[in-house]
């Protein structure tokens, strides 16, 4: 296989994505049909819908989509959905409660994918601040949730977070 040394940016015409009956992402990339495609976010924290690496089932990069908005609507929708599934990072819509019980921090959260609970042994190793008002919560099992901007949450949630972040 010939080695490429440049990043290949995919044009709108070069990529068309669909989903098969079984729910697997597939499509045409650069004129070649792929039964299964994998997508990666190159900058999962910084750019959620830009710089998406499209790879075949063998994990070889076919190219990069600069921005999801550049694609045709159907491909964009499928790509968006695939990212949602692959990057399981529920967005917190409300913080119901944060309590500290016998040395364990228990979080009760509402996310855009439904309610969930997180348990943390401490706060200093389980909370990341990528910048802005963003917070990434990682629980003991490695389950992660994201608060896009904690200042933008409702006042109840902000109050819960005030002494935490």
């Amino acid at each position: 296989m010939e080695q490429q040394f440049d990043i290949r940016m995919l044009m709108k015409t070069e990529i068309a994505l669909t989903r098969n009956k079984g729910g697997v992402l597939q499509g045409m990339v650069c004129g070649k049909r792929h039964e299964e495609l994998i997508v990666y976010r190159c900058f999962p924290f910084q750019y959620e819908s830009s710089y998406l690496s499209i790879r075949d089932a063998k994990d070889v990069e076919l190219g990069i989509v600069r921005d999801i908005g550049e694609l045709d609507p159907e491909s964009a929708a499928e790509l968006e959905k695939e990212l949602q599934l692959r990057y399981f990072l529920p967005k917190v819509t409300r913080v119901d409660r944060v309590k500290n019980k016998s040395g364990l921090w228990l979080w009760e959260l509402q996310t855009h994918l439904g309610p969930t609970r997180l348990a943390m042994r401490n706060l200093h190793e389980h909370i990341q601040y990528p910048g802005g008002g963003r917070i990434i919560l990682t629980d003991l099992n490695g389950k992660r949730c994201e608060i896009t901007d904690w200042q933008a949450l409702d006042s109840h949630s902000r109050k819960q977070l005030e002494e935490i972040v």
Binding site: G22, P44, L89
Partner: peptide
Amino acid sequence: GIGGGSLIIETYEGPVVLARYTAA
């Protein structure tokens, strides 16, 4: 995936996602 994954079966009609789960 990141923070989770899916179980895929290969049928004669192509791959099918059978279940999705979190990393735990």
